[in-house]
Amino acid sequence: MATGGRRGAAAAPLLVAVAALLLGAAGHLYPGEVCPGMDIRNNLTRLHELENCSVIEGHLQILLMFKTRPEDFRDLSFPKLIMITDYLLLFRVYGLESLKDLFPNLTVIRGSRLFFNYALVIFEMVHLKELGLYNLMNITRGSVRIEKNNELCYLATIDWSRILDSVEDNYIVLNKDDNEECGDICPGTAKGKTNCPATVINGQFVERCWTHSHCQKVCPTICKSHGCTAEGLCCHSECLGNCSQPDDPTKCVACRNFYLDGRCVETCPPPYYHFQDWRCVNFSFCQDLHHKCKNSRRQGCHQYVIHNNKCIPECPSGYTMNSSNLLCTPCLGPCPKVCHLLEGEKTIDSVTSAQELRGCTVINGSLIINIRGGNNLAAELEANLGLIEEISGYLKIRRSYALVSLSFFRKLRLIRGETLEIGNYSFYALDNQNLRQLWDWSKHNLTITQGKLFFHYNPKLCLSEIHKMEEVSGTKGRQERNDIALKTNGDQASCENELLKFSYIRTSFDKI
């Protein structure tokens, strides 16, 4: 039985969820670079991206490699990797027998973001014989899940209580170790020597080791999670996991709180800001991140802002960003909400898709409305799209047979046209069989910064309504002859009103 693990408890099935942008060198404390989270699957090609990484700022997932063999891993080693800020997950990587050479110096898994409450997941690794993470000293947050690894031993010899604050939620089941077939031998045991430290858990006094050649490092209890030197002297209180010299914040392997210019500090002093819960960055760093993602459509890219001495992905609820200094300031009234469309555009074809934009005031991208039916549609669209004030790209209304009016965009005031449909149009209306009105132009103002209007096959939309939009939106004169079809717009509506004058002759039985 794995020490510190839980057996036999019912657990939810383990679901495996399925960018080499360097964020800056980590400095003297770390020998390499800070790398983003990685999802490495199918083959070993991307694994080489770990070569210079000291910190993975995010998670590391290595999974679904069915053609790899043990010899493929023999020359692979990433000794610079010290810390993973989120979680480490391995799933069905064939041929991998140990992690001792792959990650010989991995010391800390912070667990800032977890995989279903777990910071370390080893699942269905069919050839893994031992973990071998002999320098792993601290899992700051989260638990361990090690399950269905039929060859995995050296679990009962690990004292997880020396690595985690609590072992109650560890789930370590259905491994070879369960069948008591392992016969784990710690260093020196074969020669009758006791080389590794022994600890007591559940009444068992057991030597602690990761492999037959690597003991588990056990520091004096007084050192807590700070770690200790090879001689057993406690590291500085700002260290986490390990250090090369005692009581020196510049000799830590990793930091308990924050890293700044080669030393570990309790908090980031001005003019620095907390970033990702582990390091200090200056304003320029946060500003660069903001600008890199301002026009990016890459998933996970955030326009970072500053709030409460932190550089964070977005302002919290009730705050909006001051564009001059990136500071989050309290909103006066309802907060603006910028919604970034991942692929640059979004099609609204149902109430469900409209709900995804609920509360958005600025759309960074283009909207395509293609709704053919739905219950209580006008009210639903207004509830979900009615706060949109600005669209950076274009607005396209296409084959939306259920629409009679666009009044559900009740606050839309600006279409920038930074991206144009077919390279020309910022407003595009095609084949809307029941569209009769755009907006009530006596109450609604709309500016279209650039781009043209396109109207074709809107049989109940009168040309007068379209011409009014040209005047109000500032697009009059931009359109070419064929942009607004004269014969297919309003051709099934009563669009022309003329005053009919009647004269009559009164007659009676005795007068003409």
Rank of each mutant, 00 (worst) to 15 (best):
31 P>Y: 15
32 G>M: 10
34 V>M: 14
36 P>Y: 13
40 I>S: 15
42 N>L: 03
48 H>K: 12
51 E>H: 10
61 Q>K: 15
62 I>F: 14
70 P>A: 07
72 D>A: 08
73 F>T: 15
86 D>L: 01
95 G>M: 04
99 L>W: 00
99 L>N: 01
104 P>V: 03
104 P>D: 00
104 P>F: 00
105 N>R: 04
111 G>I: 00
111 G>P: 00
114 L>M: 15
117 N>Q: 09
122 I>G: 01
129 K>N: 06
131 L>G: 02
136 L>P: 01
138 N>S: 12
138 N>A: 14
141 R>C: 03
142 G>D: 02
143 S>L: 11
148 K>G: 04
149 N>Q: 02
150 N>K: 04
151 E>I: 04
154 Y>P: 01
156 A>E: 08
157 T>L: 03
163 I>K: 00
165 D>Y: 04
165 D>G: 07
168 E>W: 13
168 E>I: 08
169 D>I: 06
170 N>F: 06
170 N>W: 06
172 I>L: 07
173 V>P: 04
179 N>G: 13
180 E>A: 11
182 C>D: 00
188 G>R: 06
190 A>K: 08
192 G>H: 05
211 T>Y: 01
212 H>Q: 09
213 S>M: 14
214 H>T: 09
215 C>P: 03
216 Q>H: 03
224 K>F: 07
228 C>D: 03
230 A>Q: 15
232 G>Q: 07
233 L>N: 13
236 H>Y: 05
236 H>F: 04
240 L>I: 07
242 N>S: 08
248 D>G: 07
249 P>F: 04
250 T>S: 09
250 T>Y: 11
258 F>H: 09
261 D>K: 10
261 D>P: 10
268 C>E: 00
274 H>F: 14
277 D>Q: 12
277 D>A: 14
279 R>V: 12
279 R>P: 01
279 R>K: 05
282 N>V: 05
285 F>K: 02
290 H>T: 08
296 S>V: 06
296 S>H: 13
297 R>H: 13
300 G>Y: 08
300 G>V: 09
301 C>N: 04
304 Y>L: 08
310 K>D: 13
316 P>N: 05
316 P>Q: 03
317 S>D: 05
319 Y>P: 01
327 L>K: 15
328 C>S: 00
328 C>I: 00
329 T>G: 15
